[in-house]
Design a protein around this nucleic acid. Structure first.
Lengths: 193, 193
DNA sequence: TCACTTTTATGAACATCGTTCAACACAAAA
DNA sequence: TTTTGTGTTGAACGATGTTCATAAAAGTGA
C-alpha cells in the first residue's frame, strides 16, 4: 500500500499538526497519542516518526499556533480606546478570554518535557518575548519617566505573575484560585503597580 | 512467601511514602514508578495497590510532606526582626530558598492528575490556605486600616503571583524567567504593592 | 494440636504508551 | 525491463499503571 500519502512532505506535516490540534482542542493534550493520531489520519503509527523526531515535537507545533493566536488576540486590543491602567486590564481581559475559550490548547502549553533544542521551542520562546513589548509600552505610557530597564523588569514581573496565576489554574488548583478570582487578583496586581 | 512484610499496615504505608520521597528527591517525580518503588522496598508491584488506590495518591502523600516543610520554613521566619515590606521579602526569600534546595520534591507539587476527592489533596489544600495567613498578617501590618476582604484578596493575589512565577520555572521556562530574575520580579511585585 | 477462616503479599497478565526498523510497494532512472 | 531509490508500513520492543486469581501466613475456636 505504501507510497505518497500526500503530495508533499510539507502537506503531510501540516495535516498532522491539524489533526493534533483538533485532538487537543476536543479531548485535551493527554488524548494526543501516536495511535490516535494515526487512526484519525488513516495512516500508520510509524509515519509520525518520519516527520517528527518525537511526539512532543508535535505538541510544540500546536503550541506555536496557540501562541500565535494569543499574540493576535493581544495585538487586537485597541490601544487608543483604553487609557493607562485600563489598557493593561484590557490586555489581561483579552488573555483571560482566550484562556477560557481555549482551555485545552492553552493548557497544552504547560505539559510535556519540551526539548529546549527543538526548533518549535526556540520559535515559541522568541514569540513569547515579543508579547512583553505590549506590556512595556503600556507601562511606559503610565510612567513616562521610568527608565527602560525598570520597565522591562516590571513587564516581566507582571507577565510572569499573570501567566503564573493562570497556570496554577491549569493544574487543577481551581479551588485555590477560581477563574472569577483570577481576574480580581490580576486587577489587584495591576492597580497596585 | 507472603505474609507480614512489616508489623503493621501503617508501618508499611510509611515505609512506602519514605521510599517514594527518596526516589523523588534523588531522581525526580518521573522516576517514581510502581516497579522502581517495589524494587527499592523489596516487595511486589501489586503490594502498592493494597495500600494506595493509585500511584498518584503516593505522590499526593509526598506532596503533603513537602507542603508541611514549606509551612515550617515560612513559620520559622522571625516576624519581629523584619519590618513591613521586609517581612514579605523575608517570606519570599525563605520560600525561594526552599525551592532551590528541594527542586525535585517541590516540582512534584505540580505534576500528576491529582484526584480532587483524595484525602491527601483535601489536606494539602487546607494546609496551603493556612499559608495565606502569614501574608495577610504581614499585609495588615503594612496597611492597618485596609479592610479584611481587601487584605485577603491581596494576599491571594500575591501568593498566586509568586507561586505562579516559580511554577513557570518548574516547567523549564528558565529561559524566560531565570532564578536570579525571580527574586527581582518578586521584589518588584511586593514593593509595588 | 488441629481444622478452619481470614488476611495479605504475590507476580503473571492485560491494556496502553512512545518508539524503532526490517520489509515492502511504488516511482523514477537506467 | 531491470535497477535503484524513497516513502509507508505495522509488527515488535520495552516501558508504563493497574488488576486479580493464587498461595502462604496469621488468626480463631475446638
Amino acid at each position: 500500500m505504501p507510497k505518497k500519502i500526500m503530495e508533499s512532505r510539507e502537506e503531510l506535516r501540516t495535516a498532522m499538526i491539524d489533526a493534533a490540534e483538533r485532538i487537543i482542542t476536543e479531548d485535551g493534550a493527554s488524548a494526543l497519542t501516536a495511535r490516535r493520531l494515526a487512526s484519525d489520519l488513516g495512516i500508520a503509527v510509524g509515519t509520525t516518526y518520519n516527520v517528527f523526531r518525537q511526539m512532543d515535537d508535535l505538541i510544540g507545533e500546536v503550541n506555536s499556533r496557540t501562541i500565535a493566536k494569543i499574540t493576535s488576540v493581544i495585538s487586537a486590543v485597541d490601544t487608543t480606546e483604553h487609557k493607562s491602567i485600563e489598557l493593561l486590564m484590557a490586555y489581561a481581559d483579552a488573555y483571560i478570554g482566550f484562556v477560557t475559550g481555549n482551555e485545552n490548547t492553552w493548557a497544552a502549553l504547560f505539559v510535556a518535557d519540551i526539548d529546549p533544542e527543538s526548533e518549535s521551542h526556540k520559535r515559541n520562546l522568541s514569540q513569547t518575548l515579543r508579547l512583553f513589548g505590549y506590556i512595556e509600552e503600556a507601562l511606559r505610557a503610565i510612567s513616562p519617566h521610568a527608565d527602560q530597564t525598570e520597565i522591562e523588569a516590571s513587564a516581566r514581573a507582571l507577565w510572569a505573575a499573570v501567566h503564573g496565576m493562570l497556570s496554577l489554574m491549569a493544574h487543577g488548583r481551581h479551588t485555590i484560585l477560581g477563574l472569577g478570582n483570577v481576574r480580581e487578583a490580576i486587577q489587584i496586581l495591576i492597580t497596585n503597580h
